[in-house]
Each structure stands twice: as C-alpha cells, then as structure tokens.
C-alpha cells in the first residue's frame, strides 16, 4: 500500500522472529496472528520472549488502573455462573483463550 518507502525491500530482509514484539503486544491481527502462532509453536527463542515481554507489558499496564463501576464485580460473578469452564490439560505454549466464534 505504501510503495514509496521501499517497504518490500525491508520486509524481505527481516527475520522470522521479527513479529514477536508486536505479537506480545497484541499488535498482530488476523491471518498474520495465526501464522506467527505456528512459528511460535516451533521456536524456542520466541517462546521464551513472549512471556517475558508480557511481564514487561503488565508493568506498563499498571498506570491505567481506574476505579471500576460498582456493578462490574457482581455482574461478572453472576454471569460466570452460567459459563462452563474448560477442563485442565497440559499445554506447552503459553496460550491465550481464543475469541469465541461469534462476531460482534
């Protein structure tokens, strides 16, 4: 989309781990996210980086803490009563819940 800055030349030169920071920041969307997750599953380097980066990000996140609406906790706990839990299973990856199928 932006031809004038020579993007494609830069991109072809970059390594396969390049997206790890963007991924840890949830800055990779759609097909590219799943594509990187496939890389992640077989890459010890990125598998070590992602959780470490997320600890860093959690530190940055503390600055956003805000008094929540009074209803938040009670409504959430009430809603959880009708939500079944996944059963435990061992996983190698530091995995996140997937967005449920419905959209919007």
């Amino acid at each position: 989309m932006t031809g004038e800055r020579g993007v494609s030349a830069v991109e072809s030169a970059e390594d396969e781990h390049a997206l790890v920071g963007a991924y840890a920041l949830n800055a990779v969307a759609g097909a590219e996210r799943s594509e990187f997750e496939r890389h992640l599953a077989g890459c010890p380097l990125c598998t070590a980086d992602v959780p470490a980066f997320r600890e860093v990000i959690a530190g940055l996140a503390r600055s956003t803490a805000t008094t929540p609406p009074d209803t938040l906790v009670d409504e959430t706990v009430a809603r959880a009563r009708s939500v079944p839990q996944e059963r435990a299973r061992r996983r190698r990856l530091w995995s996140m819940p997937r967005r449920r199928a419905r959209e919007g």
Binding site: E11, E14, H17, A18, G21, A27
Partner: peptide
Amino acid sequence: QVPLGTAKARLREGLGNLKSCMGVG
C-alpha cells in the same frame, strides 16, 4: 511514517531492552 519492518523491529527491540533492563525472565 516508518516502514513496516522498522515498526516490527522497534517493538521487539523496545520490549527486549525493557526486559533486560528490568531483569525480567
């Protein structure tokens, strides 16, 4: 206004710098 590859690289390097500076990991 930087190339896509630059944006990816800065995110990764920035987090990497914070990680080693803060001793995470």
